[in-house]
Write a protein that binds this DNA or RNA. Sequence first.
DNA 1: CTCCTTGCAAAAACTTTGCATTCCC
DNA 2: GGGAATGCAAAGTTTTTGCAAGGAG
Lengths: 153, 153
Amino acid sequence: MTVAITTTEREAIIERFMSEKGLKSTRQRNLILDTFFQLDGHFSVEQLWGKVRELDPRVSVATVYRTMKLLAESGLAHAQNFGDGQTRYEPAVGREHHDHLICTRCGTIVEFENDRIEAMQEAVARKHGFRVTSHKMELYGLCRACQKAVDAA
Amino acid sequence: MTVAITTTEREAIIERFMSEKGLKSTRQRNLILDTFFQLDGHFSVEQLWGKVRELDPRVSVATVYRTMKLLAESGLAHAQNFGDGQTRYEPAVGREHHDHLICTRCGTIVEFENDRIEAMQEAVARKHGFRVTSHKMELYGLCRACQKAVDAA
DNA sequence: CTCCTTGCAAAAACTTTGCATTCCC
DNA sequence: GGGAATGCAAAGTTTTTGCAAGGAG
């Protein structure tokens, strides 16, 4: 299970982000980043904006888009595309790399990590002359609960 | 390497698609499907439309969108999302399942397949109680040519 | 003070949809 | 002839952008 990072870690990440990119610390940026790393999930910009607005209704979506784009460029967040037409972001620091198991019935997302698979991905890429910088692996199917529900029906 | 399917196979697929879904055979549908299976790549609707229009300029984008959506629903094509904001489609019949190596610099897409990785994916899923029905694996990085280009710069 | 950021609304990019017309069967 | 399919343009979605105003350093 994923555990949100600590407040201290979060602050360190945000500070690093700001200084590395030479960005100014603003009320909305701090709020957005704080909220994002606190949520620590797979959130669309719209959802993130919703949370942020609860704390400060004056923040515009455009700023959330701009901030998340910068975050992703710094490698501190990963953009994801799960097939609905929305980009989701998830924190990429202070946690292991991981992939996803997605239940196609209830939408549950389980994270997992497997070093042997990653090693084999590297090997495959090398064989094709590629130097891999990142990857995405998603397994779609039914979670335990949904298997039961479907079998019962 | 991917090899486009034969004309006979293509016709059989299209016919099956039409009858299973109870669809009418129209000039534009046949043209779109024919072109799609002949291209046999990872094409956006826009690109596919471009090809189709070369053969018949009267076909509208809407029809291409509608047709590809039907095809994907029948399972004869897979919708893909490689991070640029476009849905791509690729034929899903008459070929092995495969995954993708994507060059982030030039956009080259290489297909590969690896049974051992697939087996391990199954194992991981089982461990989490999932029954996997499909998956997606994409490795992003630099192809050989782009590695050279970047190193030279 | 200077330049980066922001909000707003307009625009862009991609996809879907309503409706009148056309076309299969 | 009747219902399905199409074209067109309008509308929807998601994301980006121009520009004037605001704010950080």
